[in-house]
Design a protein around this nucleic acid. Sequence first.
DNA 1: ATGTAC
Length: 486
Amino acid sequence: MSEDNDISINLNKINDNTWEVPRGYKPGMRVPGRLFLSPPLLNILEQGTLDQVANVAALPGIQKYSMAMPDAHLGYGFPIGGVAAFDREEGVISPGGVGFDINCGVRLIRSNLKESDVRPGITDLLERLFHAVPSGVGSKSRLRVNDDQLDDVFIHGSRWAVENGYGVPNDVERCESQGMMEGALVKQVSTRARQRGRPQLGTLGSGNHFLEIQYVDEIYDTKAADAFGLHEGQITFMIHCGSRGAGHQICTDHLRTLTQAAEKYKIDLPDKQLACAPTDSSEAQNYFGAMVCAANYAWTNRQVIMHWAREVFQDFFRQDMDELGMDLVYDVAHNVAKLETHKIDGKKREVYVHRKGATRAFPPEHSDVPAAYKKVGQPVLIPGSMGTASYVLHGTHDAMDISFGSACHGAGRVMSRAHAKHEFRGEQIQKDLSKMGISVRATQPALIAEEAPGVYKSSSDVVDVVHNLGIARKVARLMPIGVVKG
DNA sequence: ATGTAC
């Protein structure tokens, strides 16, 4: 038996972790595809995901390659774990390249606490966090914003939260894009999206979203870890969530207009789910402006959640913020499109980089890396699945050459939710995790089954691919102690 | 991911 599966027969091996999907793979491909996968991960890649990479390569103005990260799996139109850059003048913007949960992302907070400070009271601490941060589908916040405040959130992002008492100015500095993208078009957010967004600011949501108490169990790069304020044995806190119903509704609304626009502008789509329009069209720009509103909402959401989590820790440990040292390390988006400048064939060009289930991984000295991290590069935060390690990496110059400054975003699902519910029982998974020293507090056991460690690829395998490729380099590994699931 | 089907 060859180690190659059927999939690899049609691919060209570039190196141990890079496979090219040739232009001849499917009619209409304007550029090749690139899959960043180790041979074992290639073996479990779904045919449908490969086809989606090829479909994206057929969209107008795509630059260099249609890419898939090692955690790639089937998504709406574009694969989750997909990266595609479209020329500002000749390209397109597509909601499918961003996803329904606009600016789903991850935030990491450091602390001065040790593992031994947290273990004894972990159940009580999780219970308090569970009640401080509303979670689950359709959950409502204890923070209520009016329409004017919602506009402020859409336009100013997490700065709004800090100015209204939910955090400190340093939080904004330690955030991708300072927690605020320019170009919000509040008029492009529908009444329904507003109605869904108003009561949900400061809520976790459901699915793979979580709050997690972790400890640093391995440091790979001492210099970078020092810059990020991380050391072995230290407690960290991670928040994974997005733009809730607001982002979902914005995506739904604009998918409709961009489906019509694709016909109007006579764009030949290999898949209707790739609805898009030329970058300078009103349809594309209106979507982009609404997407910015959702992205800014998501950063504000994570900021408010972090504030409430800090309050819980202060109360629980009877320490003030200075003693606790719960500084924001960084916050990354992993579902967003951005207008960025990249060097292509030796020339600087402006491109709309769509990252869907992919993390930005900017290098040392880049202008959008916080001053404190300038020498090491942007922190890249990769959450593990429930009960498995999360990783902190840093961005690199190689990422700018290879992947438009992008890396993977997580572990990547390998089993459907329905299948997982059939395969696992939540109570049993919870017991198994408990034996491993991981406590879980969730809204219902079924959700624990859907998120069981066995339904995801190994986060360490995925991270090793990006590390070995050099598009992000490992800094630290974080192991979970307690998890709150929506 | 999602008022898990307008």
